[in-house]
Structure formats: C-alpha cells, structure tokens
Design a protein around this nucleic acid. Sequence first.
DNA 1: TTGTAAGCGTTATCAA
DNA 2: TTGATAACGCTTACAA
Lengths: 344, 344
Amino acid sequence: MSKGAPKLSDVARMAGVSPATASRALSTPAQVRPETRAKVDDAARLLGYVPHGAARALASQRSRTIGAVIPTLDNAIFANSVNALQRSLAESGYTLLLGSHGYDPAVELEVTRALIERGVDGIVFVGTDHDPQLYRMLATFRIPYVLTWSLDPSGHHPCIGFNNREAAMQVTRFLLDLGHRNFAVISGLTAHNDRARDRVAGVRDALRARGLDLTPQAVIERPYSFASGQEGMRELLKRALRPSAVVCINDVLAVGAIIECRAEGLDIPRDVSITGFDDMEIAAQLAPGLTTMRLPTVDLGRSAAAYLLDRLAGREVAPSTELPVQLVVRGSTAPPRSRSAGRK
Amino acid sequence: MSKGAPKLSDVARMAGVSPATASRALSTPAQVRPETRAKVDDAARLLGYVPHGAARALASQRSRTIGAVIPTLDNAIFANSVNALQRSLAESGYTLLLGSHGYDPAVELEVTRALIERGVDGIVFVGTDHDPQLYRMLATFRIPYVLTWSLDPSGHHPCIGFNNREAAMQVTRFLLDLGHRNFAVISGLTAHNDRARDRVAGVRDALRARGLDLTPQAVIERPYSFASGQEGMRELLKRALRPSAVVCINDVLAVGAIIECRAEGLDIPRDVSITGFDDMEIAAQLAPGLTTMRLPTVDLGRSAAAYLLDRLAGREVAPSTELPVQLVVRGSTAPPRSRSAGRK
DNA sequence: TTGTAAGCGTTATCAA
DNA sequence: TTGATAACGCTTACAA
C-alpha cells in the first residue's frame, strides 16, 4: 500500500526492467520482446498504473487531446455532431476538450487560447466567421485545425461542411416550382454566424434568379428557439400580405412557426407552407411532417475527427470537403390554388 | 521571429528577470514588485506568450481542467446542463474535458480512466449507477468528484440532484387526484440508468399508496427518442384496456406519444392524458401543452461546477444537495367522465 | 532488444 | 523581492 498514484518507475521496478523499457512496452509494444512486454503489462495492471498525461505531453509534445470550439451546446444540432466527434476521437484514444462561446468572438478567442494552453493537438471550429487574431494564434502555435459546417470561400482554411447557400437555394427552388411567389424567411441571428447568413442569401439569390425580391422586412431574425419561431410567425401573420411560403433557417424555428400556425387555426399548407433546415428528429415525426434539408451532422463530427487525426499522423488529407445535403420532402407544401388567396 | 511558441524563459529574458520571477509575476502577481510585474506582463504580451499547460500541470500537480462523464449529448437535456457546466467552469479559468459512454458501464470506466490520465482535477458524473471499480479508481487517484441528477441513497458519494422517485410520485398523485385510475408508463431504458428506474418506481409507489397496481405490462421501455414515444404509445393503444393516463419518464418520449395520439385522431386529454418529465423547451410550446416536471438543469451544471471548485479550493462543501423540482401543469389532463370510457 | 541519461517547460524550495 | 536549482513523470536519442 504505497501512497499516491503508481508511476512508470514503479511499474519498471516491479517488472524488473528500466523505465525506458517500461515506457516502450506500454507505448510502442512492437519495440519490445513479448516476454518483457508481458512482464510490464502485468506489473502495470497489478499496480493499476495510469500514465501521467501531463508528463507524457511534456516529453512527447503531444497531448492526445483535441479541442472543439462551438457556439453552444443548447442547439441540439451541435450537440449531435459534438457527440459524434467525441465518440470518433475516443475510438482513437483521443479526448475532447470542449469550449463554447455563445456567438461572442471575444469569448471564442479566449476559449481557444485556453485550449491551446491545455496543449490540444488540434482544434475543430464551427463556421468561417472568426477573429483574424484567432488564425494568427493557430499559426503561431502551429495547431492543426478544421472549420466545420461551412465551406471557406477564401480557400485559406481547411474545412468540412455544407454549401449552406446552395442548400437554401435548393429549398427555395422547390417552393418556387410548386408555385409559391410570396416568401418570407425566419432566420437565426446572423451576426457572427455565416451559416445563417449564407442560408438567407441562398433564399434571396434563388428568388432573384426568378425575378423575385426578398425584402429586408420579409426576413425575421431571432435567436434559435421554438419560441422565436412562434414569435416570428406571429409577426408575419400580422402583415397585410401574408407570405404563402415561410423558409425557416433551422428546424427549431420551423417547429415554432408550425406551432404558432396551429394555435391560430391556420391550415398547413393550405394557408401557409413552412420549411425547415437540419432534419432534426422531431421534423420527421411532426404531422403533417416538415420539409427540410437533411445535413449529415454525425458524418460531420466523424469527418472532422478523421481529418485532424490524419493530419496528426502525417497522412494525406483533402484541404476541403463538401458534405452532401438532401432535401427531404414531407407533407404537402403546395401553395394555395388562387393567386389572391395569400391576402388576408 | 524566433521559431516555435515562446516560453517562459523567453519572457524572462525579454523582461530582464529570472524565469522564476517571470513565473511568479504571471501566476502570483502579489509576490512581485509592481515594476517587475509590469515588465514581465509587457514581455508576455509582446511575445504572445501562452503558458504550457502540461509543464505547468506537471510542476504544480493541477491541470485546471474538470472532466464530465455523461451518457450522451444526444439528449438535449444533458447537452443543456453540460453547457451550463462548461460556462461556469470557464468563468473560473477551468476547462471541461468531455467523455460520453452511451450507457455502457465498461465504456464509462474507460472514459474515466482517460480523463484521469489527462490529469483532470475533478470529475462530474451522471447518476449513481457506476461500476465499483470506478469508485476505486477515483479513490486511488484521490480525484474529487460529484454525482449529478440523482441523490445517492447510500450517502457514500457527494451528489447534486433531484429526488426522481418523489418527483414521479408527485406527477402520479396529480393524475390520481384528477380521477385517473388506469395508468401506463413509457420509460427510457432502465439498465444502468437509475433516473429512469427511480421515476418508474415513483409511479408504482404512488399508485400502490392508493391501492392501484402498475403491472409490468403497463411499463414500456424504449431508448429515448421521439420515435420511441410514438412506438410506445402505438403499443399501448393496441391493448384492450386503453390507459387513461400515460406517464412518460421524459419529455422527448411524451412528445412522441402525443404525436402518435394525434396521428390516430385521439383527443388529448379526452381519450388519453399524457405527462412528461424535464420541461424541455418544446413542452411549453406544444398545443395543448404538456404537463411535466421542471428540472433546474442549468442550476445543476452550475452547482456541480461550484461544488468541485469549492473542494479544489479547500472550501467547505455540503456533501449532498437536493435541487427542487416543480410540477408544471399545462393543458387539461382530466380523465374521461365515465369510468368505462377507457374501453375500446 | 534494452539501458542510460538528457531533456520537455513549469513551479516550488531555499538562499541570498 | 528575487534568483539558482531541483523536482514533476515521462519519452527518446544514443549507446550498449
């Protein structure tokens, strides 16, 4: 019963070998004779040896730790991909260090600094909107990183994500093809959020391509929440010209909008069509079903892990990967028959 | 432009002091003359110095890092409290190391080992169901920890949580008082999940206290998901004697159950009453509104952080804290008037 | 294949 | 108040 945690030298002594050999037996088993390896393994097990990560990191200059800097875990959709990321990393013996910033660039910088200080071997970020200082820090410390959810238009940064603009255009074209002409958008806050901006821009561009305008008043911006979706919809329903199609930038907002319509006794889609984004689980369950863009969030987490692990292992990596999105059509989203039906 | 990250000795040289002084100036400013402190601070800022966490941890035997071991981030409700935990820790200069185990005790042990290896100063766990080996490991390495979400019946472990059994009893008594007599439960998987077990037990106990039985067939167990709630409800609706009250152990299951009822054209609560647990955001928005137990999940995260930080700072701490829950009544959950209306 | 020994970048002890 | 100097526990040349 010696006090304190057993260290490598304890294991070595018990196995009758030098600390160096014990280290090799545990870290690079191939470099050690099977018999000695067995002795060391036994001793380690008997003592309940757990390597001291800080010492190991100091000596080897690697921490087997990856950082993730995300806006918030409150959004189920981020939680989902962070979950996938964490599980992928764990499979390769890596641990996830988590930081969130609540959409505040200053906090993001601070959080990133904290992760670097903890010696993360690599960092996963969300989106492309970041303080230039952040990129400078990453360069100074030579930290591999990858941006996720979006594609970097500048091409300067490795990224794994979706073409949010194109995806939004796709939804919009789908609605246009159904005959909708009167659009509104319910968006998350676009400040420091390129995903939301790109999606709104996608709707606008798709409309413009058909000679339609998306006026600023037709875009409602609110923090992500069911309540926001409801408020946004309420706002839209007050207007003289009620939109026939409401493109929500996110399923949470869409569900909120649907709830508000129901509360107002409106029929979906006869009175108004609503689409979402992300394909959260609830989108599939809702009656009449929510038409939405499916984003492979689990793939996203896994790919981000794979990218960093490959880089750390010195393997070849693609500098940028676009993940496919898919329009999931559920329920009918046809517009009213008569063109004037949109009027109150 | 020297290559690589600047180190303490670089800062010291630039400031014209010894590394020891530079260290003190940065870590314990009070022990250093204001002028020297200023010199060191300036040098550090100029060089963009970021302390090397591993070296610091090795020398000081503290990592300023807290681990969290959770079942999954897929459940919005865990994501929520982890978010709060992370933010509270960040405020005190601590970083969160995250591990999830998908309700597998073996994985949980492994994940915990990984966190200890990373040198976490403390660990937050969920629930009381853990491998005895896990507690042994914590003792060996003298790691402060706290169990959350539940209260430890043995009183051996520090915990911050809810009385899940009593909370479930409260919901059940509420339904009993409304006149319900025919109950069913839709639960999450109870293996390795004391929260789910306690809640089911609470329903059973409350019924028994009024001379009613909750038969094993009246309890449906499924993984947490909207789809599970639907399936569970479908299953219950097939039965000869349809329950008038369905107690769901979680809002996600409850929403699924509601969706299924709607799809079947059933009226809530005329045909069947449904209650949830957790008070997720969507519960408030749904029409006719979900009656549920509100759990202070943000408080939970914050309290867990406070507990560990207090312990690490050598401050006094309460060994166990029960957080209050609150029944939130929404919509009418009255039973059918006639006792026979429950029949198909 | 194994052992020796020199770090890795801090903090902490002890003198000055 | 400051400066040497010895840890902290491990990895990794280099030698044997």
